[in-house]
Every structure is written in structure tokens, then in C-alpha cells.
Design a protein around this nucleic acid. Sequence first.
DNA 1: CTGAATCCCCTCCGATACTG
DNA 2: CAGTATCGGAGGGGATTCAG
Lengths: 139, 139
Amino acid sequence: MTGPATAAPSAPSAPATPASPLSGPSGCRAREVLDLVAGKWSLAVVDTLGAGPMRFSELKRAIGGISQRMLTVTLRGLERDGILTRTVYAVMPPNVTYELTTMGRTLLEATRPVVQWSLENIAAIDAARAEFDASAEPS
Amino acid sequence: MTGPATAAPSAPSAPATPASPLSGPSGCRAREVLDLVAGKWSLAVVDTLGAGPMRFSELKRAIGGISQRMLTVTLRGLERDGILTRTVYAVMPPNVTYELTTMGRTLLEATRPVVQWSLENIAAIDAARAEFDASAEPS
DNA sequence: CTGAATCCCCTCCGATACTG
DNA sequence: CAGTATCGGAGGGGATTCAG
């Protein structure tokens, strides 16, 4: 699975359709990475952490609506992916601080347009859904 | 929505924490809209349709690996959200064409940075995961 | 060709309770 | 404060089959 692949320059009949980076074989990998952001809370954590290093409880309070479990799971995943770092200060009481890595910050930048788009189009989408439902499920 | 917004000068005790658009109350809505893109195939469909109007079978072939069911479900969802239009030509054999709406095209533009980031960071993430797994699960 | 319908597994996620 | 452990519901998503 980890094969180099994507290195098949000799494809004869391949249309190469570079139109969509998510369509081809390499698209599978991209999709996989996009799952990173697809998680229910990943984006919120990255976005919130964009303000600077933060502790567990601060994150929990800032995000709001997230359970300890999901915050922990999400943080673990992002740490594993190299998006953020987890620093434990052996003091009393325990102090664990999370901070975006360089890669995490580039991810934050990359996601800004999507987040902004979401905010800008919430109303339009609500309207579209209402209209669709009205004309499709009048029963 | 397209309003200038962010112009709430009269909030007295509001901390305003503009740090994260996904954290606050409005963030819940944004998260909701982001689910639109979170689906396993939504982005691939939008991305693929970026090349121009396409038929059902063309989409299926272009994306590859998607089942009829998921393509249908994904298309319905995106149509409901006003991201794409579904046009049926009553000919023989049936011809159904899907095309991005204006909003769909703006979404495509907004997602480009994330898609590109994914492609650029696949290797780094793989490495980070391997390293994390190696030092966390040695037993 | 396009799609709806069914079956079924599997993961995500929330609520709760317990530890250091 | 910062987690971990467990249970259980809900939904995503794949394979297959049927229909217009």
C-alpha cells in the first residue's frame, strides 16, 4: 500500500485527466489525508489552536459541546499526524499544553478558505435545502 | 451573509474571541456546513465536476472506486445543498447530466487549498504517523 | 443508462463513571 | 486538571438486487 506508485509515466491509453486530483489513484491517498480534516472536531481543534498554545481544559471550554473523550481522541489523532504537539509539565496540578506544529499552521492556512466559505454560504445552503425539500417531499 | 459582519462594536461584556470561527456558537453552524464536504465522496464529486458537466456513468468512471449507491446518495445531497444541478434529458437511453452551480464553483475554489495541502503533506503525515506509532507502541 | 431498495458491518461519537 | 474505560445508539458506506 505504501508503494511509490503514482509513478506510471508510461501509461499508454491513460487519458491522464488531470482535471481532478481526487479522482485518480493518487486521489485515494488524498482522500485519506482529507479524512484528517473530515473528523467532526479536527477542524475546530486546529482552528481554535490557531490562537496559540492551549491547555486541555481551555480547548474544551473554547470549543464547547465537545466531550472529554472526543477531545482526547481528536488530539491524539492530530498529534499522531504531526499537526500538533503535546507537552506535559510535571507540576501540580498537571498541566498539558497543545500547540500547532509548523505543518499544523500550514493546514490552518489551507483550511481558512473552506471555513470562510462555510460561514458565507450557510444561509444559501439552508435556503437550497428548504426549497429542495419543499418540492421533493410535498407528499 | 455576504454582509460586512464582524462589525459588532456594541458588545459590552462579550470577549469576542475572534480567534476561531469554529469555536463559538456560530461555529456549530459552520461545522454543520463543513459536513457537506466531510462525506467520503463529496469532495471527489465536486472536484471531478469542476471539469465541466458530466453524466452519471462518466462520474462513476472518473472517480473510480465509488459504488452506484454512494454516487447517487452523494449527488442527491449536493443537489439538495444547491452545489450542483441535475438535468434529465428524456431521450433514449436516459441521459442525466450533473453540473456545478455557481455556489458549487465557489466551493470548488475554496477547497482547492485543502486538497493541495493534502497532496503536499501526504508523505510528511505518513512519516509522522510511523514515528508516533514506533515510539508509542514499541511493546 | 440511471437509479431505488434492501441487507449488514463497522466506525464514529456521546454519556457516564473511574483513575492519577 | 487531564485523562482512560466501557456501553450503546446512530449513521456512513459497501455489495447486491430490482425497476423505469
